[in-house]
Every structure is written in C-alpha cells, then in structure tokens.
Amino acid sequence: MKLSGAVVDISKVDTRFLRKLARELGSSNLSKCFQCGVCVASCPVRWIEAEFNPRRIMKLAKLGLKDLVLQNDFIWLCSMCFMCQERCPQDVRPPEVMTVLRNIAAEEGIAPPNLMKLVDMLSENGRVYPIDDFIEDERADKGLPEVVAKPDFIMKIAEAGK
C-alpha cells in the first residue's frame, strides 16, 4: 500500500503560519476537522481530478505544514461550490479555509498569474471585462441601457496599497 500521501513530517510545522490562520479563520472551524473525508466524497472537482483532496488540505493546514499546503496548485483548484460546506459534520467550512490559504499564498506572491491579473484589471478598468466601444455599440443596438464603463470606486479599492 502506498502511504506517501498520508504520512507527513511534522518537524516542518510553521508556527507563524498557524498563528496567522488562527487570526484569519473567522467563522470556519478548522481545528474541529476530524478527517472523515465527507468533503472529498462530496467534491465535484475531486470527481475529475483524483489528486485534489480537500480533506488532506485541511489536515496539512491544521498541522501548520505551510510548505506542503502551498507546494502545488491544489488550494486554487477548489471551485467554491460549497457542497462540502453543506455536508461537513464539523462545520469546518473548507471553502472559507481555502480563501484564507489563498490570501496567504497571494501575499507571498504564489498565486496563479491569471488570478493576480484580475486585481490589475480592476484597478485599470473597474471591471474584470472592460466595456469597450464594441460592447457599447452592441449594447446600444440591443436597446440596453448605458452602464458605468469604469466604476471609479472599484478602481480605487483595487489600486489601494499597490
């Protein structure tokens, strides 16, 4: 039996990471995760990609094994569908944990470039998909009302601290 996926080296515990998690986790209950695997059984991403394992992500995060949590793109593969959140017997709220883990990874600059780009898009256009002349014409043709092309409050928030 292959155990390499299940055995972890806890000498690599990152206590700063654990403290940060504790601060940021809000209403999720990571510490209560008892590794039942209901999240895995509920997961539509897991259905397609057998390597994606929310139970294991919860385990590694709970143990403070930051490097192992962030060593691949798994935390970014959760589609935020909330199936596991509905069914988790411990109210762990895995998708909320994923968001906290993603924010930590992004702070360290290890987020998928496609997602990082969205912040730039929002600071440049106030929209994820810009409303250009072509779209404005198409909207007018169809009798759709004008929308604010570049909402400036969004641009300012996206730009903050950059």
Partner: peptide, 19 residues
C-alpha cells in the same frame, strides 16, 4: 453598482469585501 469583489476574493478578501 460596480464589481462585487468576488473575482479577487482569492487574492485579497479585504479588498473584495470593501468592494
């Protein structure tokens, strides 16, 4: 209205909630 914030929540939840 402008962007709801959802697209950048994975990157920066505080900015997303501000939006």
């Amino acid at each position: 209205f402008g962007c709801c914030g959802f697209p950048i929540e994975p990157i920066d939840q505080v900015k997303a909630i501000s939006m």
